[in-house]
Every structure is written in structure tokens, then in C-alpha cells.
Design a protein around this nucleic acid. Structure first.
Lengths: 110, 110
DNA sequence: GCTACATTCAACCATATGGTTAAATCGAAC
DNA sequence: GTTCGATTTAACCATATGGTTGAATGTAGC
């Protein structure tokens, strides 16, 4: 199932909107880890972490592969590129005094 | 009420996870607009748009000011900088072949 | 095939979300 | 101060979310 661009951004930003999930991403950025290893530092049940991982996986922010009886989770950073590209549009609005310019123009706008 | 950094990112990413809200941000990036003007192109009631704007405002992505009987909504791009900084950490993982390197290291990690 | 361990699934719960309609508020203008 | 237009609030609804516990599944090893 190919997601529309909007739906992809929905799932990516939604995945990033939870602090546990951001922490899991950070954890996994240090190297691929099993679900149990990922869960240990978080005060949550394995089932809860498993659900969070499913959300991250739906957003294609992580991928899994089985290794023996373990599920190995690894970062799939390219999905974040979509978020980055979305943000890029707004960069001119916060960097440089274009911001001041924009506000000025808005003032005249009505 | 000062939000912790995590709570700010929660509210920012949550605000961005909805396509209507992203569209509203895009609309308002072209210049400050009244709530009615913002609502018009979206097939939603004013009440719904008002709620979306409240979410964007809670994330400090927009600000309002009253002008007569209108509420003028303007972009507050600097909040997006927080999201950008969070993303920046991951840039090395998708740009360049550092990605391949990371996966290689992950392979050895266990 | 039984046992043990890693992980997921199912059922459940409380709260949040995104939408609606209808009533209430607020400012402007007469 | 009444009326009109702009917006918010309240009440409601269906569905989603984030968590739990307990049962089920899958793989490894004996």
C-alpha cells in the first residue's frame, strides 16, 4: 500500500509526537537492538513498547528483522527526510530577517 | 506555563500530524489571515477550524491578534526551529553513506 | 515433543481527537 | 441598546490512542 505524501507525513509526525517513541528512535540510532533491550530502560510493559514500535514501523522510521528468537530493530532514517523536506519550506521564515520582512508584508495585507 | 522541551516537541509534532493543520500553516505562511479566510478553502465548519487553530496556537506555531471583530492569525515560524533541531540529530544517518556505515556497525553489534 | 524465552495479540479501560450542530460571546455600526 | 457579522464555546458522537494484564505464538535447545 503506497501512502500519499500527506498520509506519510501524517504517520511520521504522529510517530514523532510521543516522547517514548522519540526516545526509542534515539536509542536505536546508537545501533540496532532487540525489542527487549529497547524496552528495558523505559518504565513500560513489553506490550506497550511493542505497540510503539509498530507505530514507528508504520511510519517507516524503523525496520525489523528476525534474528533467532529476537526481533532486531534498526533505524530507518530516510523517512525523516520527508519531514525534513516539509520543514525546509519554512526555513526562510525563521532564518534571517526574512521573518521581519514577512511580518511587515502581513501588516500591509489588510 | 513553560513547557519542558519534550512537551514542546510533543505539541509541535502533534500539531503537524494533521493534514488540515499543515495546510493552515501553509496558508498562513503566505500572509496573516482572518479565521474566516483560513476556513473558507477547507471543507470544514468554522468551529472545526477554530479548534485546529487552537492546537497550532498551543504549539506556538501561530499567533493571533484581534483586529476589529476579526482574529488575525499569523505564522510563528520559530517554533518549527525546535522541530528542525530535533531532526538535525538524525541528518547524519540519512545523508551520505554514513547510513551504510551505521548499518554495518549494527551488524557487528550482536 | 517439552520447556524456556522473546515477542505479539486480544480484550479491556480511560482519555484524547476530530468532527458536527446550536448557543453564546464579542466588537462594530447604526 | 439592538442588530449584524466573526469567532468561540458547549454538548455531543465515533473513533483513535496509550496503557494495562493475560493468553497465544514462534524459535531454540534439550
Amino acid at each position: 500500500m503506497v501512502k500519499s505524501n500527506a498520509a506519510r507525513l501524517d504517520s511520521i509526525f504522529h510517530a514523532l509526537a510521543d516522547p517514548t517513541r522519540r526516545a526509542l528512535l534515539r536509542d536505536v540510532s546508537a545501533g540496532a537492538k532487540s525489542v527487549g533491550d529497547l524496552a528495558r530502560p523505559h518504565a513500560l510493559t513489553l506490550a506497550a513498547v511493542s505497540k510503539h514500535l509498530k507505530v514507528l514501523e508504520a511510519a517507516e522510521l524503523v525496520a525489523r528483522q528476525r534474528r533467532g528468537s529476537f526481533q532486531i530493530v534498526r533505524l530507518n532514517a530516510p523517512a525523516l527526510l520527508d519531514a525534513d523536506e516539509w520543514l525546509a519550506y519554512y526555513r526562510p521564515f525563521w532564518s534571517s530577517r526574512l521573518d521581519a520582512l514577512a511580518q511587515h508584508l502581513e501588516g500591509e495585507n489588510q
